[in-house]
Design a protein around this nucleic acid. Sequence first.
RNA 1: GCCUUGGUGGCGGAAUUGGUAGACGCGCUGGAUUCAAAAUCCAGUGUCUUCGGACGUGUGGGUUCGAUUCCCACCCAAGGUACCA
Length: 1188
Amino acid sequence: MNYDFRKIEAKWQEYWAKNKTFKASNNSDKPKFYALSMFPYPSGAGLHVGHPLGYIATDIYSRYKRHKGFNVLHPMGYDSFGLPAEQYAIQTGQHPAITTENNINRYREQLDRLGFSFDWDREVRTSDPKYYKWTQWIFIQLFNSWYNKKSDKAEAIETLVSQFEKEGNANVEAACDDDTPNFSATDWNNFSKKTKQELLLKYRLTYLADTEVNWCPALGTVLANDEIVNGVSERGGHPVIRKKMTQWSMRITAYAQRLLDGLDHIDWPQPLKDSQTNWIGRSEGASVIFNVLPFGEEQGGDSNSVLPPAPSSGGGANARLTGDSSMIGILLERAKEMRKKPTPAEDKLWQALRRKNLDVKFRRQHPVYKYIVDFICLEKNLIIEVDGKIHDYQLDKDAQRTLELEQKKGFTVIRFTNDEIISNIQAVLKKIEDVLSSLSKGEGRGGDNHPYQIEVFTTRPDTIFGVSFMTLAPEHDLVAKITTPEQKAAVEAYVEATAKRSERDRMADVKTVSGVFTGAYAEHPFTKEPIPIWIGDYVLASYGTGAVMAVPCGDQRDYDFAKHYNIDIPNIFEGVDISEEAFADKATTIIANSDFLNGLSYKEATKKAIAELERIGQGKGKVNYRLRDAVFSRQRYWGEPFPVYYVDGMPQMIDVEHLPLELPEVEKYLPTETGEPPLGNASDWAWDTVQNKVVSNEKISPFGGDREGEQTVFPLELNTMPGWAGSSQYFNRYMDPRNDEAIFSKEAIDYWQDVDLYIGGSEHATGHLLYSRFWQHFMFDRGYVPKAEYAQKLINQGMITGTSAFVYRIDLEFGEEPKKEFKSPKIYVSNTFYTDCRKVYDFIIQSDISDKDKSEFANGNGYTKGLASVIEGTIFIDLLNEQQRAVIKSFNKLFQQLNEDVVEQNTKGVLIGLRFTPIHVDVSLVNASDELDIESFKKLNPENLDATFILEDGKYIVGREVEKMSKSKYNVVNPDAICEEYGADSLRLYEMFLGPLEQSKPWNTAGITGVFSFLKKLWKLYSPLEGGEGDVEPTAENLKTLHKTIKKVEEDIENFSFNTSVSTFMICVNELTAQKCTSKSILEPLAVLVSPYAPHIAEELWERLGHSGSIAEVPFPKFEEKYLVESSKEYPISFNGKMRFKLEFPTDMDSKAIEEAVLAHEKTQEQLQGRAPKKVIVVPGKIVNIVG
RNA sequence: GCCUUGGUGGCGGAAUUGGUAGACGCGCUGGAUUCAAAAUCCAGUGUCUUCGGACGUGUGGGUUCGAUUCCCACCCAAGGUACCA
């Protein structure tokens, strides 16, 4: 009897369904095993052969575990909310639920044909209200929770409220909004209900926030970054604006560190862990606060005082920057110069002042009004002038200056001579101290009350003395506030220009350096020197604080910026040349020119800089994350509705007992005319808090919030949840999918715990796989699940790519267009001719020929014109070898033929070249030898009916290229067709046989004949047993074959090396066939071994061996070492590591005896050719190596 | 740029701790069977070769009796990520 796979597969699929063979029980004495494949989005296109790869792997593992005595949970479902169904609905008006249902049915049909061991009773669909009831439930749990940083976990919001009531929020350490104000218990208790709600929203794990989105008014929708090209929408080219919208967000940032740490405890692929690590983007460094120096007196409006009035009266307060703003630039330049070359007296006093550790700070060479004073204490308004010889000739001027500074600007000025300082520094210091103490504190106008501060995040606090400017993102809040009137126009123009560019454009354009000076200065926290503040679009508002301290010597971007705008590039590295580029290597850094950091390494300097910043209160060590809170609102129809209604603008949760809140019917699936999400089209979308149900919008009371007590009907949330909502806990729902009382029962989660094996694509690395971990951590914190990580082991199956096939059409290229009557013949050339021509072309292009020749040659449409010129002028013919000339010759021949054709048809056209156009051809028209079925090709493409095919060896051979499977490339292979022709078992085996599971590999249907004939051989091996006569004793050989197969297959499955076990099966069947094995005690266990891979044939063979019932629960065969023991071993004899011949010795022969036997052997002598071996290495059981 | 993974015949791939490189399959070549085709079966198939053998796992070095495997440098490909401060 033949192997009738169609009949067999149909029979057993029906049997499994009828008998619920794979139904998992929630209580069992057996150990549990939970194997999970990522559930699919049921797209309209159905499955192609790439999709089932992961499912087959999971299925094999599940079936194996069942044989091994586990209670296996292996469920499947559908991630059935999503965009394609909605888009189809927009186009056709068909309800997405219908589209989805149809697609699911088609998926189910395709999946059923492959013989998976799914427990279909546990199927879930994310778009089913019975399922999304629990998605809504989780949302409510998140809303009712906050993240306590002290306990480092999520807690019920009530615990927060009770803290507020007792002690306000002073002692609360929580993940919350940045703008959360401080309040006391009294404050809290006196707050209105609404204020309390507003404040709590700042702590909840899901919260409302104004988020910037790309809004396209013409399309009425929010666009993702990659849907925008050059600032306009990809579809339709409509303008896109950045718009703030109130949207739900998930406080995933609260979990950043735990999501990072958790990666260490799960067995997931390294690349996937890495991409999550990158995505979370932890960087350690410091936050540093720079005070912005207020404007000069011009802004103050009071020309009599160097110090502008407080902000309330219209300017900055407490000037650090005291120079006349009209000449500040020059003054600063000069001050800088003077600082570089102080006189000996100045230097001595400076050092002394610094050593003295006075309570106040001095700066030197500081611009005041239109002068530069030698030393100044801003806090006390004290100026110290040193009169050296250079000043002698201008005593009068000095007097004038002192007068101005003292009387007009209110400073105290004291003067010393060079001699006083040099000869008696102690006296000088004493005098300064006396004067300082006579000036009362607070009288000065310094202090730390700066109107504006810029906070930056830096990973290199060690380079703080290298800061020579600061850059703010153009969107930074401070930009408008600090810009000076002179710079206002330039800054505004720049900000506007940046706003027009999409974020993507900005990122793409890395090379252009651009920015504008704001006119403002910040003060260096240590040197107190003024630092110019720029804006530039290389600083991103969305990362860190949107501001950077620029260290041009240590960061290439800062370096480029400084070079471009001629900003100072101080070098703070020991022995490093920065004349060409920045020096960013931390490992070899030694800090210089940096005051207290001099001579320190990166690590030491970082530590010390942070400590100093903390001491002066201008910074602290900080860990920054790239991860942002996740926006959770979508302006779509086909998603989970939020269980939320609004009272007086504040969100309220619907009670869990009234869930699910089902999607309303709408007339159109587009946004409303007023720009509201599609749910805005629903006429019944209001919540009646008395009846607890959805009612008509008309019933919403018009009174609004001020008569809240009377209002009972409120508007519902119009957004829906994003795609990842439904997939973030589905794995837990499978444990108890029909439970209407809870998301899952405690018993179910306690029994199943977590997923033991999860298989799916790596494209979900930073989406589903991160968000679901976040939710699981949350569920863990709140005590709903026993494990913080839901999947211990995860495998990414590789992508199966398509092998596209090409035919090469010849197009004629004319120097002069022919008359209309010329009928261009359709000619296709075979692959060899095409590739040969191409190779010659590439060869010539890469040859050492002049650029002129090259451009002449490559001129025109591709290489064929070039080849034609070789024919005509034979200009490069000398370069070519014989083979290449032969190619040119046949090309020439074809060209001549076609030219005759052209002449014959009496056109005036002049043929100057031939062009090959590769055209995708359907892979189903190509056989295993890459030969095209020309007749079918013509039939499928009637325009080719009269086409000519230039063959090679009587065949038309197509070109091959590996590409992603796609309809437009005609390389999609449908599993149904394969099942029809070879059966599901063949398909399953072949998908596994193709290569390692995790690797991406090209599909080529031709190869399936290999596994198909294996199955036929397997079938044949069992056919002698059909009579059912008694068993035959197995031979030692039989047993050896069987047991080495058991060993290998078991190891392979445990290692997910499914491809190698398929070869093992092939070897086993080949050997047993050769041995003419008919022993039941060999063939029975073999059927079990094969059954995870090819379950249909295994069931059938099992039945034919005389068993009733399914093979699925039969114990896995036990490997026994004793059958593999050998009495002798064939030793490879190698010379200097190269194997030359083999010799057989008994396994128990010792090394010495082997060595002697080998050396005595004639072949050894032959190899040595008289040389004496230097050394002989014998590894018992492995190898003999002779060194000579 | 950075991170990750990989690079072995005409192709997919194997070699599990450093020990016979190319298992298994496709394709190809020859043969058997057949009126013929399909299917099936048998033999061969890394390269070169003076038929002794020599060479051979991206390239160049190194460690070792012995390297596809370990180390260093580089090249190439795929995937992820990015003015991330």
